[in-house]
Design a protein around this nucleic acid. Structure first.
Lengths: 233, 233
DNA sequence: TAATTAATTAAACATATAATTAATTAAAAG
DNA sequence: CTTTTAATTAATTATATGTTTAATTAATTA
């Protein structure tokens, strides 16, 4: 510990947030509120920018608290991030378990449910794609585990069942079918930022139903004209 | 220009790359080679990590040159990145224009072509997704413009044509159909890192044909069993 | 009421990074 | 052959960031 001063003399305004100057324990102290403000701010920033692209100071600014509170409440930037991820995943799990499921629901209901869920939580595909594709590896594992262990196999089982029942072609590969199903369901939201630009189509909240209907029809009937059974028109 | 020294006295080893010590213009000077080495190294790093997550030192290390060469040849980190993006896009445009096209090719050929292209350049979907979803905005515009102005409308036109010809259902929404087509085609590669984990399926180079065939069949016929015209089995 | 603990800010610290500059050597031009 | 230009490295600069600490004030406890 030689402790030679390197950059002494700067300091000053490094993101004067919220109650600047009010040093010391605040009067109507609600520590839970500060914690949640930090979580909210973290959500806002992390959901559309990379972990490294977001600075503690930015989060603290948005939350209106001092950057040191991140250490105080979450141990550091990483801790805050993990806490945020956790709260997100728990929220999503709630929504997921509220969706209709079981053997009796139709693919249409399934697609409609997930499409509506995605439309209501547009952060989800973005976040998952970012975590899974560009994550450091640790969070990646966690996210994959928490999400896909349940959803993936359940979907595959469902498709296998339909094949056994004779409802789906028996030359259908169940896992590829599920990948396709996820593709048509997720991709519009993954690509949302550019869809409007390219396709002159916004996919706003009103179009969600139309999208779900389209996906259902495509998945079930494909695009071919002719004597396809069960036309929706 | 007060020029007060802040952190004088460190220096030392900050990524001693390649020909360390060899100061001055090298003897068999091939400046084009250095330029390309930098581009290659940039590609390697930027294609699987974020812009901010990659440091100039890392790139210079991989390239085996001094970090200052980045400034010399490309003006800075950003310049190198843009040059790399440009070379990538030009390479991809070549491959794209080499694909079969025109009025006479089938959807099957189309899907097979793009799937093979993606399989041969797995960096493409990753890169595009990252740029488009999480980019700063400037590169985003450029990428969208360069890619999608051509591909998107062309695909939509194709689908409209097929509807007019009576080959596709006339209740089909062309832009949604193209979004779906892109979804089934791109998503497996976007999700490649997790597909093996969840679906016990690797999507290696051998499975590409199978995937393309599956996508073609799904897009055309859907999954339903029964009297579907033109079964592939 | 006195002592301790909780919550908060401002400031300092350490480190990493992109950018720049100065020195240095080879090649090219005159 | 001399001068200028090109290419390269080492060192410096400036800045941004996550973390830590010290001071400060309110709440809690003894």
């Amino acid at each position: 510990m030689t402790s030679k001063p390197l950059n002494a003399g700067n300091a000053g305004n490094a993101g004067n947030a919220g109650n600047a100057g009010n040093v010391g324990r605040p009067v109507g102290g609600d520590s839970e509120r500060v914690r949640n403000q930090l979580l909210d701010a973290a959500r806002q920033h992390f959901l559309d920018r990379d972990f490294k692209a977001v600075s503690l100071r930015q989060i603290a600014d948005t939350a209106g608290v001092n950057p040191a509170m991140v250490k105080y409440y979450f141990g550091g930037k990483r801790g805050l991030y993990l806490a945020m991820v956790d709260s997100m995943l728990r929220q999503l799990e709630e929504r997921l378990s509220a969706l209709p499921r079981g053997a009796e629901i139709s693919v249409s209901e399934f697609i409609h449910g997930y499409t509506a869920l995605l439309a209501a939580n547009p952060w989800w595909p973005n976040f998952i794609v970012r975590e899974v594709l560009f994550g450091d590896g640790e969070l990646r594992e966690e996210v994959i585990g928490k999400f896909m262990q349940h959803i993936g196999p359940r979907l595959i089982g469902r498709v296998e069942e339909e094949i056994t029942l004779g409802n789906y072609r028996d030359n259908l590969d169940p896992s590829l079918a599920v990948i396709s199903l996820l593709g048509v369901t997720l991709f519009p939201f993954i690509a949302a930022p550019i869809i409007g630009r390219i396709f002159k189509r916004e996919l706003g909240p009103d179009d969600v139903n139309e999208l779900a209907q389209h996906n259902t029809a495509l998945f079930l009937q494909g695009v071919l004209a002719g004597p396809s059974p069960g036309a929706t028109s």
